[in-house]
Write a protein that binds this DNA or RNA. Sequence first.
RNA 1: GCGCCCGUAGCUCAGCUGGAUAGAGCGUCGGCCUCCGGAGCCGAAGGUCAGAGGUUCGAAUCCUCUCGGGCGCGCCA
Length: 585
Amino acid sequence: MNLFSEYRNRIVDAVEELASNGDLPHELDTSRISVEPPRDASHGDLATNAAMVLAKQAGMKPRDIAEMLVTGLRAQSEISAAEIAGPGFINMRLDSVAWYAVLAEILRRGQAFGASDMGTGRKVNVEYVSANPTGPLHIGHARGTVFGDALAALLEKVGYDVCREYYINDAGAQVDALARSAYLRYREAHGEEIGEIPEGLYPGEYMVPVGQALAKRDGMKWLDEPEHVWLPEIREFSINAMMNLIRDDLSTLDVRHDIFTSERSLVEMGKVDDVLENLEGRGLIYTGVLEPPKGKKPDDWEARPQTLFRATDFKDDVDRPLKKSDGSWTYFASDIAYHRDKYVRGFTDLIDVWGADHGGYVKRMVAATDAVTEQGARLDVKICQIVRLLENGEQVRMSKRAGNFVTLRDLVDEVGSGVVRFIMLTRKNDAPLDFDLAFVREQSRENPVFYVQYAHARCHSVMRMAADEVPEIDTATEALQGADLSQLTDEAELALIKTLAAWPRTLESAAEAHEPHRLAFFLLEVASAFHGLWTKGSRENPSLRMVRNDAPELTRARLGLARATQIVIASGLAIFGVEPVEEMR
RNA sequence: GCGCCCGUAGCUCAGCUGGAUAGAGCGUCGGCCUCCGGAGCCGAAGGUCAGAGGUUCGAAUCCUCUCGGGCGCGCCA
C-alpha cells in the first residue's frame, strides 16, 4: 500500500463526486493532481495541489475549490485535520490510527512491504557491465556493475519482469589484439624470450596463465604457424578465459547476469545483415560523405563516401557510419542489430548502463533503437560518471603502465562487497563519485554504510536485550504483530513510523526515475530517525527506552517498531545486494 | 567549433520529475554518558540555488543565452 497514491485516489474521487453534484465542471483533467509529504512536517502529513491544478480549467478560485474538498476530507475518519494553506494547498493530518495501520502492515508483510505491481509484469532488459573481454574488471567498471544490478533489483521489486544482460564485444579488432597477446604468452610459456609486449597489445600479467594453459592444451601446435592459422582458435580460447575472469570478478560482488549475448554470434547468425537490410528497405541507409568534425580534426582525415544511417531522422546530430573502410561492420552496426534483437525477444523497456566515456554515443543509439523498433521499445541509457579512488583525500593513481591497474577484485578484497556496493550507490549515477578508502574503513556517522548497518544492528540488539530483561515477551515477528501499537505516542516514535511509511513511495519513484541512489538516502533517513529515537530514550527520557521491564505491553509495541525498522532497512539493503549485519562488536 | 552531463552552505552532496520559509553530513561553535551499543544524539551559526532573461498562480527544477568544469566528437568498443 502506497499511502500517498491511496490518498490521491481519494482526492480524485472527491473531485468526481463534486463534479457529479454540479459543484465542479465535468471532465476535469485530474492527472496533474499529486499528493506528497509537505516539505515542512509542521504542515501535516499529506499535502495536495488539487485545488490549484483544477482552478484554471474549472474557472474558479483555488481557495473555493479547496474549501469544497476540505469539507469532504474532514468527514473521513482517518483524517484528523484538513486545512487550506498558501495559494491553495490542502494540508492533511492523519490520525495516529492510520500510522499504526501502516506499521502493522510492515510487520505482517515483512520484506514484501513496499513491493508493488507498478511494473505490471512488463519485460525490462537491463544491460550492464558489458566490459570488453580483454582483461579483468577494474574500478571504473565497478560503478556501472553495482548500479545496473541494483536498478534491476529495484525494478523487480516494483513488479517488472527483469532480465540482467551482458553484451560481449567479441567481434572487433580488440579481441584480435587479445589473441595476439595470448599467442606471445603462449610462446613465452614454451620458454621463448618475448621481451616487451608491443604497443596495442595487452601487456597485463593476467595473460601469462592464458599462454600457459594454451601451451598445456595445444603443445607446440601453433609455434610455426602463421597468424591466420592460429588466430581464430586462440582468440576463442582467450575470450573464454577472459570471460571466466570477468565472471569471477562479478561473483565477488555477487553479480549474476541472466544472459550473456555475444556480438560475434549476432554477426554470424546474420542479424546485422538482416537489420541493415530492413533499414535499407525503409530508405534509412545511404552512401554519403560526412563533414569533418570541427575544432579537433584527426590528422589522417580525408573525405570519403561511407555507408551511413539516417540518425538525423531520429533526432541525432549527424548521420552515423555503419561500415569500416575494410568493409566490416562498425560496432554501431552490430549494436543496432543487438538492440533490435532485444526488442524481438520481447523487451519493450531497454536500459543500457554505460561509462562516462560513452556519453557521446547515447543519441545515436536511442535514434537507432527508435528506428529499428519503430518506436515499439524505449531505450534509456544511464551514464555512470567516473569514480575517483581516494585515500584520505589523496587520489590513488591507477597507473595503466604495464597493465598495472587497480582491479575491482583488489577493491572488494580491501573493503568488502557490501561497502563497495553501498558507496557506489550514494551518488546519482551521472554525478562523479569520490570513493575514499580511509573513509569507508572508519566506523562513524560519516561512513554511510556503517551508519545504516549500525541502526540495523541496534534493532537486533534491542531484541536480544528484551529477551533477557523481559523474557515473557516473544520477539518473533508474528508475535509482535499482536502488539498494541497505539502505545506508541511519542513524537519521535511517530516520526519513525512516518518515515517507514514512505518506503513504498520511495521505491516507486526511484524505479520510475531509474535512480537507485534514492534508496540510499532513504535508508540514511530511516537510520537517522531510529538513532534519534534510541538516544532520546537512552539519554533524555528513560521512559522512552525500548525495553521496559516495568511495562511489557509498551515494550512489545516498541519492539514492533524496531522490528519494522529492521525489516525496511534489510529490504533496502537487499535491493542493493548488501548483507545486513546483526551485530558489529 | 558542436553534442551530452554538471554548477545548490567553507567542503562533500540531497532536493521526491513545477509547489509553501531550499535540506543533510563534514568542518566551526555550544550541549548530552549511573542504566537498552556515546561507533550515537541535540542545538546554533552558515545561501543572490553560477549569472541574465523568459514561461505561470508558483522555478533550484522547464525554455533561451552567457560564464565555469567534466566527457565525447568518421573507418575503437
